[in-house]
Amino acid sequence: MNTAMNGEGRVEQTIQVGLDERSYPITIGTGTLGRIGSALAAAGLAKRYAIISDDRVASLQGQHLLDILYQAGLVGELITFPHGEASKHLATVEQLASRLAERGFDRKDGLVALGGGVTGDITGFLASIYMRGIPFVQVPTTLLAQVDSSVGGKTGVDLPQGKNLIGTFYQPRAVFIDTEVLRTLPQEEFLGGMAEVIKYGASIDAEFFSWLERQRKAILALDPAAIVPMIRRCCELKAQVVEQDEREGGLRRILNFGHTIGHAVEAASGYQLIHGFAVAIGMRAAAELAVRSGMADPSVAAGIDQLLRAYRLPTEIPAGFDPATLRTYLSIDKKTVGGRIFFVLPERIGAVRITDQVREADIDAVLRGEFL
């Protein structure tokens, strides 16, 4: 990790995702948004960029980023779509692609994903297929996107049958993370992002898990002294995993901790439950399965439950959710192979196991909300 002071005296940190010719930097700092134009101009990726953003984020940051690109001698155009998970489907991608074509964008132009995880997934997928692939950069504006979805090159859109069932692996050319934009987030969105943060500690780094326990007050107060290193550590951990397994052939699957049942809960809610909350529920459910399967001591599940609750995250499947419906979504999840559902289960804090050796009766009990 490289650390440098920018011209305004602020600390800026850069992490490199090492993927040979597909390597790229992740720049993390306060006020990073204002330096994107000069960075892109220096990189020479394109002279013209389409900023893809949902209507909410565009109203807050769209014109500002257009001005930043203009000041750096770059041409920018803002293209928006309706906010929310409901827009994450092929029709939106087709509409955005048509608007690019109408405006004469070609394979020497680029895209900027300005927004949260939905925007990043849509823009990355669009970049991977438009003109058979054009460059794009990520400018994540939510905590969830900053610590997870903007890094690693997963793109995708939803089908009625489940999340992210259509997608590609396509790496961004750069990721720019400005921690100041987190202050514009609704509290629910920030807390949802914390679920993905806790995922890294619970599944990979026990020391980070303990650090999150100690720093809870500072993190919830958005203290930069805690927020910047927190985001940096998440990006470091994800970069390390992606470098070893870019296309999720093995190791990278550990990053799905909490996502198997979490995706089913999210889909069963009609995507009204935000992703981070669903992942929190999924992590607690996975921990319960680990205990029931004899893979983990009950203290592991209790520790995960306690930290999630400390960050005001839900840990139980909402009342009224039909277990049979959840089962249906599990059966078509991308992590189901040959009819067998693969789970990422914690053996201890900071270590998980990928397995399909889970009793059907235990799955059914957890889906009914029956915890030991």
Results as ranks from 00 to 15, higher is better:
R35H: 15
I254G: 09
Q240T: 06
T92N: 07
G116R: 04
V352D: 02
I122C: 04
I317M: 03
E207D: 13
G31C: 09
P135Y: 01
G303A: 15
G369W: 06
R368Q: 14
L367Y: 02
P323Y: 06
F190D: 09
F342G: 07
L90F: 11
T30A: 14
R252N: 09
V228M: 11
C235F: 10
V291W: 03
F125T: 04
R232Q: 14
L273R: 06
G120L: 08
S23L: 09
M283R: 05
P298H: 00
V300G: 04
D362A: 09
L66H: 08
M5T: 13
D158N: 15
R312E: 15
Q16A: 13
P224L: 01
T119R: 05
V241A: 10
L111R: 08
S38H: 07
E316Y: 01
Y24L: 13
F277N: 14
A264H: 10
Y311M: 01
F371I: 15
C234Y: 04
F208E: 09
G110E: 00
T32H: 04
A285C: 15
Q161D: 07
V337C: 01
Q272C: 10
D109G: 03
G270M: 07
V358S: 00
D245M: 13
L69P: 03
Y49A: 02
T119E: 08
A264M: 01
E94F: 08
S53F: 08
R359E: 14
R348A: 13
L222I: 06
T27C: 13
T179R: 10
D106A: 06
V137G: 10
G124C: 10
M1E: 10
A361E: 15
T14M: 13
Q13A: 13
A46Q: 03
A218T: 01
A239N: 03
E243D: 12
S203T: 01
F371W: 11
F136P: 01
L367H: 07
L19S: 08
G152A: 06
S98I: 03
A43D: 15
G320T: 01
Y130I: 09
I219V: 15
A50W: 04
E85T: 10
Q146A: 15
G156Q: 12
